[in-house]
Design a protein around this nucleic acid. Structure first.
Lengths: 97, 97
DNA sequence: AATATATTTCGATTAATTTGGTAATGTTTT
DNA sequence: AAAACATTACCAAATTAATCGAAATATATT
């Protein structure tokens, strides 16, 4: 993961509504949750929800899978682990070198 | 760390210039680096640098320590570990429960 | 094909952020 | 106290993001 990708990913996480959505999905596990379920649980207008979901998708943090009339949002854990690794890598490398 | 604090912290990291600054400091180790050194190394106008540094300070990601005429920026690793823990906690808790 | 349900797109408004020049402030050294 | 250095505050312009109602689209069921 390069710096711009990491910044983009962190930026999308850095909004209370989107972080709430993402955390809910992280908790949900590998199956994720339907948009409708998120809208209902998190009590958010659906057009706002859609925008935030689109942002999370654009950052690679979630994907969406259609299942009949339902669209399930599935968290992309690997993307999260990658951005965390990006933040930690090179830590203190300049110290006493 | 609560959700709003985490969102704030992630938001400030979610900008290419600020992430560059923070990563440079993370690499530098516990002593950090003077603002002047950052400005020079990262080739950024000092008023822009100041804004970004202030943002990182406001998120608790760095602190500044005066040393004569130099102000050193010191990364707050604990804040970083805390936000990482926040992102990981509750992972998959809803699965098969 | 009509209906019901689920989700997105459009569009407009409001609000916040980024940027960097210039001026001001604070600190150390002489 | 003056000079040199380091950093911040103030300001304005340009860009970008957040919000959500209303209209449109997609899918499933009958």
């Amino acid at each position: 993961m390069n710096l711009d990708e990491a910044a983009k990913t962190l930026k999308e996480l850095g909004h209370p509504h989107r972080l709430t959505i993402f955390k809910r999905l992280v908790r949900s596990g590998y199956a994720g949750l339907p948009v409708g379920k998120l809208t209902e649980e998190l009590d958010m207008p659906n057009s706002s929800m859609t925008h935030h979901i689109a942002s999370l998708v654009s950052a690679g943090l979630i994907i969406q899978e259609r299942e009949g009339r339902i669209l399930r949002c599935v968290p992309q854990y690997q993307r999260l682990w990658d951005v965390i690794d990006f933040l930690k890598e090179e830590c203190c490398m300049d110290e006493e070198g």
